[in-house]
Amino acid sequence: MTRKRTKQTAIEQLSQYRQKQARLQVLSTYSVGAGITVSRLNEDDQLQELHAKLRGLPSYMYLNKHELKLEQAANAYMTRYPAGIKAQKRAVPVNVMDDEYHELLQELRDKIQKVIAARGYEVRDDIDAVLDRLAEFQDLQADIQRLDFILERLQEYKPYEATLLRWIYIDGLDQNDLVEKLDVSESTIRRRIKKAEREYALLAR
């Protein structure tokens, strides 16, 4: 990817900040049922914390003999281990030739389904729609956190440029607003914006 294209991509992502934030707010109020919203589901999700704790330990320290077999089956047939629970369930193969592994993988899918039920997802019939929105919510959170992180790093050594980008892409000020706010010419504003975008793109690439 050329430097020009890299910069364009970085700025396009930054320009989507407000849209992503608005969509995140909309998703946060999406009702799962029983008074539970998507944002509440995300806050209550303890699987990632558990995975982080267990990742550093050998599996024999926390799995029994049968659970080790489940792990072996998963390792043999699963090519990826996604974070979202819906994606986790879909990642478990349905049809395998080995009868023993077929039963073990079915059991693994059933266990994931029990987690879904325990979280109250089954209070709605459209479980896929709920999980789609939860996955989108988590992806948007990650995107916004990354954009914030880049701006924070830019703020550490180019505070003016970082502030200028926040005014434009987060606060929604246009060039006329900035001309009035900073009491400078339009050409000066355009030049400073280009400089700020170049600095941002260098970090974001």
Rank of each mutant, 00 (worst) to 15 (best):
Gln25Phe: 03
Leu68Cys: 09
Arg190Glu: 12
Glu67Leu: 00
Leu104Ile: 03
Tyr17His: 07
Ala73Glu: 02
Lys114Ala: 04
Ile112Phe: 08
Leu178Lys: 07
Glu199Met: 08
Ser59Gln: 07
Pro58Met: 08
Met61Val: 05
Leu165Lys: 00
Asp110Asn: 13
Arg192Val: 01
Leu147His: 01
Ser185Leu: 08
Asp143Ile: 09
Met61Leu: 14
Val179Leu: 08
Ala73Phe: 00
Leu203Met: 09
Ser185Met: 08
Met61Gly: 05
Arg55Trp: 03
Lys195Tyr: 10
Asp110Gly: 08
Gln175Ala: 14
Asp183Thr: 14
Gln19Phe: 13
Lys195Asn: 09
Asn176Pro: 01
Ala201Val: 07
Gln72His: 08
Tyr160Cys: 06
Arg205Asp: 15
Ile11Gly: 10
Ile116His: 13
Gln25Gly: 05
Glu152Tyr: 00
Lys195Ser: 10
Tyr81Leu: 03
Thr6Asn: 13
Gln72Lys: 04
Asp128Ala: 12
Lys181Ser: 02
Leu134Thr: 12
Asp148Ser: 14
Leu131Tyr: 07
Leu41Trp: 03
Leu108Gln: 04
Glu12Met: 07
Asp143Met: 09
Lys86Ala: 03
Ser187Arg: 14
Glu100Gln: 13
Ala196Asn: 08
Leu57Cys: 07
Tyr60Met: 06
Asn75Trp: 00
Ala135Pro: 13
Leu47Phe: 02
Tyr17Glu: 01
Ala142Asn: 15
Glu199Asp: 12
Leu178Gly: 01
Arg205Thr: 07
Lys69Gly: 00
Leu104Ala: 08
His66Cys: 06
Leu202Ser: 11
Ile144Lys: 00
Leu202Lys: 14
Glu103Gln: 13
Leu134Asn: 10
Ala162Tyr: 13
Gln106Thr: 05
Ser15Thr: 08
Asp98Thr: 06
Trp167Gln: 01
Tyr169Glu: 02
Asp177Thr: 10
Gly56Glu: 12
Glu156Met: 02
Leu131Glu: 08
Ser15Cys: 08
Gly33Met: 07
Lys69Tyr: 09
Leu164Glu: 00
Ile144Met: 04
Leu147Glu: 00
Arg80Asn: 14
Arg153Cys: 11
Lys20Leu: 15
Glu136Trp: 12
Ala52Asn: 06
Ser59Val: 03
Lys65His: 12
Thr29Ser: 12
Glu122Ala: 12
Arg192Ser: 03
Arg80Ser: 15
Gly56Met: 13
Arg205Trp: 09
Glu136Gln: 15
Ala129Ile: 06
Asp143Leu: 08
Lys86Gly: 11
Ile170Val: 15
Glu152Arg: 05
Asn176Lys: 05
Lys4Met: 05
Val184Phe: 12
Ile144Phe: 02
Asp44Phe: 01
Thr9Ser: 11
Arg109Thr: 06
Tyr30Cys: 03
Ala142Trp: 02
Thr29Arg: 15
Tyr200Lys: 03
Leu24Thr: 06
Leu164Met: 15
Asp139Phe: 12
Lys65Leu: 14
Asn95Glu: 11
Leu57His: 10
Ala52Cys: 02
Glu156Gln: 07
Leu140Ser: 13
Glu49Gly: 12
Leu147Val: 00
Gln138Lys: 11
Ala129Lys: 04
Ala87Gly: 02
Ala87Cys: 02
Ala52His: 10
Lys195Leu: 11
Gln72Cys: 03
